[in-house]
Amino acid sequence: MTIQQVFFLAVAAITLFAAVMVVSTRRIMHAALWLILALFGVAVSFALLETGFFAVVQVVVYIGAIAILIIFAVMLTRQVFLDVGPQLNRGWWIPAVLVAGLYAALVGVLSTWSGFQTQAAALPEAASDLSQFGLALVDVNAYAVPFEVASVLLLGALVGAIFVASDRKGVER
C-alpha cells in the first residue's frame, strides 16, 4: 500500500464516521457540526484525486452555503434542540438486514466488473485545464442547453423561495 492509499482510507473512515454521527447524535447542532466534517472529508477526497476544482467547489457550495443554510433552517424551527426519545424502534433489524444484504450484493456485482482490475489510465494534461470545461459549457454540441436550463432552474428556486417567504409573512400578520 502506498502512503496515498493509507491517507485515502483514513479520510474515508473519518468521513463515514462523521456521516454516521450526523444521524445518531442527539443534539441537532452537533449533527450540523458532524455534517460539516463529513462534507469536508468529501472535499479532501476530491483533492486526493487531484480534481482541485471540485474540492474547492465542495467547500464553497456545501460548507460555505448549504451548511449555513441548514443551520439557519434549524434555527427557524421550534426549539427541539435535544432529542430525548428513543432512537431505535422495535423493527430496527429489518432495514439493517436489508442494507447489509444490499451491500453484499453490490460488492458481489462490482467485484466481477472488469474495471476493478485494470489500472486507471493517466489523465491527459488538458484534463486539469478548466477552460476545456468552460468551452464545453457554452458549446452548442456539448452542454449549452443544460447550462441555460441550470439558470432557469436556479430562477425557479429563487421564485419558489420568495413565494414561501411571502406566504409566511401573510400568516404572521
Binding site: M29, L33, I36, G52, F53, A55, V56, V57, V59, V60, I63, G64, A65, A67, I68, I71, S128, L130
Partner: peptide, 24 residues
C-alpha cells in the same frame, strides 16, 4: 494551485463557520 481564486472563497467560508460556532 490551479484554483487559487476559488480557494480564497472557500477559506472565507471557513471563517464564517467560526463566527456561527461562536454564536451557538
Amino acid at each position: 494551485i490551479s484554483v487559487g481564486v476559488l480557494f480564497i472563497i472557500a477559506a472565507g467560508a471557513i471563517g464564517e463557520l467560526g463566527i456561527l460556532f461562536a454564536g451557538w
